[in-house]
Design a protein around this nucleic acid. Structure first.
Length: 194
DNA sequence: TATACGATCACCT
DNA sequence: GGTGATCGTATAC
């Protein structure tokens, strides 16, 4: 069952926290590849100097649009990063998906990542896009209704399993750099939800 | 048109 | 710990 649009039509920080444990699914060449979201970051609008949506440009316009769409951008000349657009139409925001715990299609995921170990397959925003075959061709797809890239309800994440820290690799003013808008799921084994 | 640089990663020491 | 790869995007001429 896809996550509903209402899930994304909320405050961006709330969505970032709530996406932990949800399942990201990619159907590639007919095969289901998936993982549980283990790390996210919230990005805001004009008042967030670290966000692409600090200004409205052709690239960032999607962050100002309706919630639940994928925003895929290209960085450092070689990597893609996947975001989910948040907040109601007209209000900018998105959540960067930074890491996954692989679930389905593990052999394919590892092969696509040059035989990387399970924990290294998707433990970074560029890595998970390589593993799942996410490129800018998927920019703008509806994550609440799509068939090649979408989100499903995953595992419950308890508050004590969540760590909040400043965002990784961001520039901007002190406010942008210090906001604790990165959320990481610290799994304490044994974990019943696999 | 031209230029500077980044929401990263892999590999090096 | 540090650095190079590599190019779309934003912004300044």
């Amino acid at each position: 069952m896809h996550l509903a649009r209402a899930f994304f039509d909320r405050d961006t920080v709330t969505v970032a926290r709530s996406l932990l444990g949800q399942r990201l699914v990619r159907v590639l060449d007919g095969e289901r590849l998936s993982g549980l979201i283990a790390e996210t970051e919230a990005y805001g609008g004009p008042d967030d100097e670290a966000s692409h949506a600090r200004r409205r440009t052709p690239r960032s316009a999607i962050m100002y649009g309706p919630p639940g769409l994928a925003y895929v951008y290209f960085v450092y000349g070689m990597y893609f990063c996947l975001n989910a657009v948040t907040e109601s139409d007209g209000q900018p925001g998105a959540v960067l998906i930074r890491a996954l715990v692989p679930q389905e299609g593990i052999a394919t995921l590892r092969a696509r990542r040059g035989g990387a170990s399970l924990r290294e397959v998707a433990n970074g925003p560029g890595k998970l896009c390589l593993a799942l075959g996410i490129t800018r061709a998927l920019n703008g797809v509806d994550l609440t209704a799509g068939s090649e890239l979408f989100l499903e309800e995953g595992c419950e994440v308890l508050p004590e399993q969540v760590v909040a820290t400043p965002r990784i690799g961001v520039r901007g003013n002190e406010a942008a750099r210090s906001r604790p808008w990165r959320f990481a799921w610290h799994r304490t084994p044994p974990d019943r939800c696999v």
